[in-house]
Design a protein around this nucleic acid. Structure first.
Length: 707
RNA sequence: GGCGAGGUAGCUCAGUUGGUUAGAGCACAGGAUUCAUAACCCUGAGGUCGGGAGUUCAAAUCUCCUCCUCGCUACCA
């Protein structure tokens, strides 16, 4: 074997909310299957995870709920940890980045790079809150979104319209902490020179991993590498996080994406004193399981950090999955469009393996996939229960009916071709499942196991022991054939338990109980064998492995999703309308922007400042290298004005020429793509995002004032 | 706009050193059976492989163009 040890990590879930089925399908379930398989192979593995507890969103959530960041992470660390444990995700450790060992480890890592002179120190101007005496990260800055006028857009993103922002773009930027207006002040940060590692990364990835990594992962990396890497700040101004271990670095913490992957190392340290065997030995196979949103950090930044530090193994593979949609729509935590694990476990007690089955069988391994409750029902009822569950049940029931409740012996003299073939199928299935799991093709591996059960059903059907036992006389004459058939079906059941164990551990355990065997039988080397169960040994009565999912349950879950969505929308409306200036509005979904937008009362004088006028579009053309922009010329009665407007997604130049529009005529000029825009056209935006001209109903004079 | 991934049967997916009538599971239809969770087993129907052009004796597979979905990124306000 090439590797002595396996170090398997699953992305550190962010401790500001519970986990949903998308997390499970994308990362934790494949990681668990892989880990359980490796353990069954008796390989030396450590399966590492923990919650990521730093970063700005946690501090913001703490502010909103009026609690400390530590309260937030304590709460969700527990929720997340419990969900994983209940679903059978078998981490060797589920740690957390707020632990002391993690602070020590990440600080030591940073200091090593610092002492090697790797960091570039750079000063830049950042917004500063003089009231709270603190520099503000982009996320802490709120202001009016220049795009949708959401008064509570963040400095990095407007969560109403989804646009990416920089703090400089916000209108009237203010502090999310104190609501105070902001000043600019110099601040110092430490930049990791990613660009210096670009040649090495190119060689390591584009030459070394081309055929090894999944196409989506490799392609994404290559895209990043081809576009050129820039130095990246590895520190932030914040009070929540791992303090930068340097003098005169008060109020500075490690960037959450610097410290989070080091969390894998800290957690391993916490787990075992021999942690360096796993992290520093060349004979360790390091595999990062992540979702596609983490590719750049795990494939580019973290490896570069490890390389810069020296002495660490690099990931052998990063099998990132894509995203799982729900009922045709993207998961949205703010709209509560998600299937939460803790709620699933309440609604479907003792049905962990049903969910594990569906999420693996339909895992987004090569592209985004859709989870529907109908599909959940179909797969559980028609594949899991009908093929696997039913086969095991048939074998046990027949054994009790035709073989006295004991494992019958195998009569070699009565063996036929079908018997020999079935034994061969067991061996072949082992090889196929093994190859699939080693190659991170978990859905294929799972399908192979079900297929083996299907072959069992066919074998049973072809041999029909119940027909051989129609009358006592007939049964006596055919007992040797009956014994062989049941014997093999039960040996096949034992094989199925071994092969299904990494995927459906709860089921494997139930099967072991029924077969009265100890867990050791599940060791992988036993797969493919036809002598796992001892002849003449009494076995237990069968229990139903998978119950059917009823239509009513499917309907209830779909309804629950839509109810959650409706509640999220109305909650968003309530909170937004009652928001005081001291508390920023909660994250709102772009789809809600149209209904959730409420602004503070203004006086007539405020309104009178706006010069609204009617104009007619006399010329329109698309702006080059911009998706949304049209360059318009407007007849304002006394002048022709140029206005650049972001409406190209909804209108072609031809169809709007001659249209009369309402224009904000005294808006400060602004350059876009090199064209100076003198004003803004008023548009209404529907819930679906479509724009509609807010124009006079009848033709007005060009230049007419609107008031 | 740039880059990346994907677009194959109603659904979920296999299928590249280009090669006979393009595969599987589910769903659907018919049959057989009754040991079993109204399950299983057999048979069948169902696809111009997103669209177009090209290379070739031969293209799902290679080249170019184009459309759609998702992601990253830019631009936007």
């Amino acid at each position: 074997m090439k590797y002595k040890r396996y170090l398997i990590t699953a992305a550190l879930p962010y401790a500001n909310g519970p986990v949903h089925i998308g997390h499970l399908a994308g990362c934790y379930l494949p990681a668990d299957i892989y880990s359980r398989y490796q353990r069954a192979q008796k390989r030396d593995i450590k399966f590492i995870c923990g919650s990521d507890e730093h970063g700005v969103p946690i501090t913001i959530r703490a502010m909103k709920e009026g609690i400390t960041p530590q309260d937030v992470v304590d709460k969700y660390n527990k929720v997340i940890k419990d969900s994983f444990a209940d679903m059978g995700i078998s981490f060797d450790i589920f740690s957390r980045t707020s632990n002391q060992v993690h602070h020590d480890t990440s600080q030591a890592f940073f200091l090593k790079l610092y002492n090697d002179g790797l960091f570039e120190e750079r000063e830049s101007e950042q917004y500063y809150d003089e009231e709270k005496d603190i520099f503000l990260a982009d996320r802490y800055i709120v202001g009016t979104c220049p795009n949708c006028s959401n008064p509570n857009a963040y400095g990095d993103q407007c969560e109403k319209c989804g646009s990416t922002l920089s703090p400089e773009q916000l209108i009237n930027p203010r502090s999310a902490l104190s609501n105070a207006p902001l000043v600019k002040k110099l601040t110092k940060h430490w930049y990791f020179p990613l660009n210096k590692y670009e040649p090495w990364l190119k060689e390591w990835i584009t030459e070394g991993k081309k055929d090894e990594w999944k196409p989506n992962v490799y392609g994404q990396c290559k895209s990043w590498l081809d576009s050129g890497l820039q130095p990246r700040a590895m520190t932030r101004d914040s009070l929540w996080g791992v303090p930068v271990p340097l003098p005169n670095a008060n109020g500075k913490v490690l960037y959450v994406w610097f410290d989070a992957p080091i969390g894998y190392i800290s957690a391993t340290k916490e787990l075992t004193a021999n942690w360096s065997d796993y992290w520093c030995g060349e004979d360790t196979k390091l595999v990062h399981f992540i979702g596609k949103d983490n590719i750049v950090f795990h494939c580019i930044i973290f490896p570069a950090m490890l390389k810069a530090h020296g002495g660490f193994v690099l990931p052998d593979n990063v099998p990132a999955n894509e995203f799982l949609n729900i009922e045709g729509e993207k998961v949205s935590t703010s709209r509560n469009w998600a299937v939460w694990i803790d709620e699933y476990l309440k609604d479907f007690p003792d049905q962990q393996d049903a969910l594990r089955y569906v999420l693996c069988a339909n895992a987004p391994e090569s592209k985004d996939n859709d989870f529907t409750w109908k599909d959940f029902q179909d797969r559980v009822n028609n594949e899991l229960a009908a093929v696997l569950g039913n086969f095991v049940n048939r074998a046990f029931v027949l054994m009790h009916k035709l073989c006295g409740g004991r494992m019958p012996q195998f009569h070699a003299v009565a063996a036929n071709e079908a018997d020999r073939n079935l034994a061969l199928e067991m061996k072949a299935a082992k090889e196929r499942v093994e190859a699939a799991i080693e190659g991170y093709k978990f859905r294929e591996g799972l399908a192979e196991v079900i297929d083996l059960a299907r072959k069992g059903n066919k074998y049973l059907q072809d041999n029909a022991p119940w027909s051989l036992a129609k009358t006592p006389e007939l049964q006596a004459a055919n007992q040797a054939r009956i014994d062989n058939c049941i014997h093999l079906c039960l040996q096949l059941t034992a094989n199925l338990a071994i092969l299904i164990n990494p995927f459906l551990p709860f089921t494997a355990k139930k099967m072991c109980y029924m077969m009265k065997v100890v867990d050791r039988m599940l060791e992988w080397e036993n797969a493919g064998k036809s002598d796992l169960l001892k002849t003449n040994y009494p076995l237990r009565a069968p229990e139903i492995l998978f119950r059917k999912i009823e239509d009513a349950e499917v309907a209830a879950q779909v309804e629950k999703l839509h109810n959650n969505l409706a509640m999220a929308i109305s909650a968003s409306l309530n909170i937004t309308t009652t928001t005081t200036p001291e508390t920023p509005a909660p994250a709102a979904d772009p789809a809600l922007a149209a209904v959730a937008d409420q602004k503070a009362t203004i006086t007539y004088e405020d309104f009178a400042k706006i010069d609204l006028r009617v104009g007619t579009i006399v010329k329109a053309e698309k702006v080059a290298k911009a998706d949304k922009l049209l360059k318009l010329e407007l007849d304002m009665g006394t002048e022709i004005r140029t206005v650049v407007s972001g409406i190209a997604l909804d209108f072609t130049p031809d169809e709007i020429i001659g249209k009369q529009v309402t224009v904000v005529a005294n808006l400060a000029p602004r350059k876009m793509k090199g064209i100076e825009s003198n004003g803004m056209i008023l548009m209404a935006q529907n819930k679906d995002g479509r724009l509609i001209f807010a124009s006079p109903l009848e033709t007005a004079d060009n230049g007419a004032e609107v008031k």
